Simulated scan of single mutants.
Amino acid sequence: MRSYRKELWFDIPARREFRNITSQVERCLQESGIQEGLLLCNAMHITASVFINDDESGLHQDFERWLEGLAPHEPLSNYLHNNTGEDNGDAHLKRTVMGREVVVAVTGGRLDFGPWEQIFYGEFDGRRRKRVLVKIIGE
């Protein structure tokens, strides 16, 4: 069995953003040369997420509205975590809801997706450099 590892780095200028990273992950798969196996893609920061869903702008706006309803950024006093001097208590909760990672089957050297599936990086406390790990194992 072979393995491949690569970090993808992101500089998101806004506090929150959803970014389609499917093409970057597919490039990793091509670089790996692995034809059959599993691909893990995970956020390496506790205020960011990796998830699979449809690349449709209305859905992304729905995510934003829904997440802000569940864990609004303000007032900052809503979160005990913010007593540490941080202002990102909401981002930790949003990440928990959206998830840390995805695992995708690799078949015939391609991501074995269902219809409309794409991989997204979700940033909930941006304005600094963050990374995503891509780890692929297989033959």
Results as ranks from 00 to 15, higher is better:
S3Q: 09
S3V: 12
Y4L: 06
K6L: 03
F10I: 10
I12E: 07
I12D: 02
I12K: 10
E17K: 12
F18G: 02
I21Q: 06
Q24I: 07
E26H: 02
E26Y: 00
R27T: 14
R27D: 10
S32Q: 05
S32D: 03
G33Q: 04
G33L: 08
I34L: 13
Q35G: 11
Q35L: 14
G37A: 02
G37E: 03
G37V: 09
L38G: 02
L38I: 14
L40A: 04
L40N: 11
C41H: 01
A43V: 06
M44S: 03
I46W: 00
T47P: 15
T47C: 14
A48D: 06
S49D: 04
D54A: 09
D54C: 12
R65M: 07
R65N: 05
W66C: 11
W66T: 15
W66E: 05
G69N: 12
G69K: 11
A71M: 12
S77C: 10
S77V: 15
N78F: 03
H81L: 08
H81V: 13
E86S: 14
D87A: 13
D87T: 15
D87H: 10
D87I: 15
N88V: 08
L93S: 01
L93G: 04
R95A: 13
T96R: 08
V97F: 07
G99N: 10
R100Y: 00
R100V: 14
E101W: 02
V102D: 02
V102I: 11
V103T: 15
A105R: 13
V106L: 03
V106K: 04
T107C: 10
T107W: 00
R110T: 13
R110S: 07
L111Y: 00
L111E: 02
D112G: 10
F113C: 14
G114K: 14
W116R: 13
I119F: 01
Y121L: 14
G122R: 09
F124D: 06
G126F: 05
R128I: 06
K130P: 09
R131Q: 06
V134I: 15
I137K: 05
G138S: 11
